[in-house]
Design a protein around this nucleic acid. Structure first.
Lengths: 192, 192
DNA sequence: CCTGTTTTTCAGAAAAGTCTGAAAATTCAG
DNA sequence: CTGAATTTTCAGACTTTTCTGAAAAACAGG
């Protein structure tokens, strides 16, 4: 690896983390190198920095592209492709969440839905279905929240996140404002 | 595998998904079996249902326990341990998030912080640090939001999630109510 | 068309991860 | 203690994933 110590440490950690997620070490490292690079890099730049084979870099780039995580740029008069990560880190996270959802959550939801359509043939299947239903409902709740929040502009999102659970106070305020008779709070209704 | 078809399909999918996360297939399957089971199961129940070796089950259980994902119960006069997953699926998700945070986010934050403390020795390190700083700030924002929201009771959380981005309207309402001079919105301040 | 440059593909080597059976350890009733 | 029941450990077999070098393919300027 021919990287300044600081970059090297970052890249190594990222590789390590990558391998805890479905992503393999090298792919994580390639991304990390591009993330901290001052300028777009071509495949051979990455080969040099990480000390891995050219073909491995080629496959890693393809993998990252399939995750929509890379931008590329060509320099006139140079036949090589140069790769870089988006500047805006919020955009990066959005893409990441989007892709994980597409690959993990969506297929799961569709399996769960299919299982919920079947007629249970025994008590044990009936019980399993009830359990699966709970899981399905929770995932639906989370994804619809996400789908909704994801539309916000970054600035709004930051505002919301910064507020954290203080948002509940604002909600309370609203409830008090449109006070329900008897001072009772609006219950959250999830069950039938 | 000796499971009713519905359970089998669920277990297989879960195993598949598990292997996309850092978790191995068998561990995912063991969890799935326990999740849909009508009663707590002992290790040999799992051996029978999944058709894997006893030792594999033993290791899988240990792994799940290290994730805090299992409860166990002993039946008087029976020497075996019986395992089950918590009833409350919200509690399960909380644990899951908690553990992933502990294993992935926290170590990353501490690495990033360490890297930000170093004095850059070159332009390229300076640039890398700036990039790392952006990432660090975003992760901090997300984790502090999480730390905050995580304290809410489930009912409140559901309320909040159900509201989705409509929350922004409530915020706008609040802003209008405590209107700032000139009708300008409160800016989200993240930079220096 | 060539030709030199760059990228992609792919078979098999290497490495990492998973699973098993056998043996060791633990537990507990008598 | 003893010994039956149960759980844990672990070396090595097996499987899967990753990585490489060599070859093929794609490309662009002449």
């Amino acid at each position: 690896m021919t990287l300044p110590p600081l970059c090297e440490a970052f890249v190594l950690h990222f590789g390590e983390m990558g391998s805890r997620w479905g992503i393999n070490r090298t792919v994580g490292q390639i991304y990390a190198v591009l993330f901290v690079a001052e300028r777009p890099l071509c495949a051979d730049d990455i080969v040099e920095r990480l000390g891995i084979s050219r073909s491995n870099v080629s496959m890693g780039i393809k993998e990252l592209q399939s995750w929509n995580l890379l931008r590329q740029r060509s320099i006139p008069g140079d036949r090589r492709e140069f790769f870089h990560t988006p500047e805006d880190i919020y955009a990066i996270v959005r893409t990441l969440v989007e892709e994980r959802k597409k690959r993990e959550i969506d297929p799961t939801l569709s399996v769960l839905r299919e299982l919920l359509m079947r007629s249970p043939e025994s008590d044990s299947e009936r019980h399993a279905q009830a359990r699966i239903r709970e899981m399905h409902e929770l995932i639906e709740l989370l994804t619809s929240w996400y789908a909704d929040v994801q539309k916000l502009e970054t600035e709004r999102l930051i505002q919301l996140l910064s507020l954290g659970s203080k948002i509940v106070k604002v909600l309370d305020m609203k409830d008090r404002f449109f006070a329900l008779p008897g001072g009772k709070r609006q219950p959250a209704n999830t069950e039938g």
